[in-house]
Computed example of a mutant assay.
Amino acid sequence: MRRTALATPALAAVLVGTQPASAQPAKGWEPAPSAPWDVGAGVRCDFPVHGQPVVDEVVRRVLSAYPDGSVRRVAYRGDLVVRVTNTETGASYDADASGSAVVEHRPDGSQLWTVLGPVLVGVGQDQGSLPRGLYLVDGVYTLDISPTGYKSVRLLHGTTDDLCARID
Rank of each mutant, 00 (worst) to 15 (best):
A10Q: 13
A13L: 12
V14E: 06
L15D: 11
V16H: 09
Q19N: 04
P20C: 10
P20V: 10
A23M: 10
A23I: 02
A23H: 08
A23G: 15
Q24F: 13
Q24A: 15
A26R: 09
P31R: 07
A32P: 05
P33M: 06
P33R: 11
P33T: 08
D38E: 14
V39H: 03
G42V: 11
V43T: 15
R44M: 13
C45P: 01
D46E: 12
F47Q: 01
P48I: 03
V49M: 08
Q52P: 03
V54Y: 11
D56S: 06
D56F: 09
V58G: 13
V59E: 15
R61A: 04
Y66T: 10
D68T: 00
D68P: 00
D68Y: 03
V71Q: 12
V71D: 09
R72E: 14
R72Q: 15
R72S: 02
R73L: 08
G78K: 02
D79E: 14
L80F: 07
T85H: 09
T89G: 04
G90Q: 12
A91Q: 15
S92G: 06
D94Q: 09
D94K: 07
D94A: 12
S98Q: 05
S98E: 02
V102I: 15
V102A: 03
H105W: 01
H105P: 00
P107S: 10
G109K: 07
G109D: 04
Q111N: 07
